[in-house]
């Protein structure tokens, strides 16, 4: 998005694509890994990797990885709600050949206006600050709003 809005080549600097899904019928790693392997076969010829994650399993590893506990998500939408920046709470999929489904609980204005707004509901401050540091290097036009002191 921000590449196009800032007149850069659309895929410039994109390190990966995140493909999230929700399947709580089997919370074992093997089931998720099977999907990841299928994705590797499907997307393997693309120039950047597609990272696949089952959001139903996030609570099993989140605290070890980020240092704060995460309640089990009831859906992919709930997982998107907890992204570190509200601006990034955005998911898109195709339902059918040409039917786009867009989940954007905080709207799209900040996305187009290049405003990054913190979402202090789960991810710790350092996650937001690390991400926004990297984004600002890539898109200097971004306005990055500070993490609220009250959120720790």
């Amino acid at each position: 998005m921000w590449n196009v809005v800032t007149d850069r080549p659309p895929a410039e600097g994109i390190r990966d694509y995140d493909l999230f899904y929700f399947d709580d019928s089997d919370l074992g790693w093997d089931a998720e890994n099977e999907v990841i392997r299928a994705g590797a076969r499907l997307f393997g010829d693309l120039p950047v990797p597609v990272e696949i994650r089952n959001e139903a399993r996030v609570h099993l590893w989140y605290e070890d990885h980020f240092g704060v506990p995460c309640e089990p998500y009831p859906s992919t939408e709930a997982a998107i709600d907890s992204f570190a920046a509200t601006t990034c709470c955005l998911g898109v999929r195709l339902d059918g050949a040409d039917r786009w489904r867009v989940y954007a609980p905080h709207g799209l204005a900040d996305v187009f206006n290049l405003v990054v707004r913190p979402n202090p509901v789960l991810a710790p401050r350092q996650v937001y600050e690390a991400k926004t540091r990297r984004w600002r290097e890539q898109w200097p036009q971004l306005t990055v709003l500070p993490w609220p002191d009250s959120a720790g």
Binding site: I14, Y21, V50
Partner: peptide, 30 residues
């Protein structure tokens, strides 16, 4: 949004191919 994202052919390819995985509740996210 759709017009903007459609400028990225890689992203479009991921969206189209992802449908074939038939994953429950999937989204390409940001």
């Amino acid at each position: 949004l759709r017009a903007t994202l459609s400028r990225n052919e890689q992203l479009l390819e991921v969206l189209v191919r992802a449908t074939t995985l038939e994953l429950p509740g999937w989204y390409l996210t940001a």
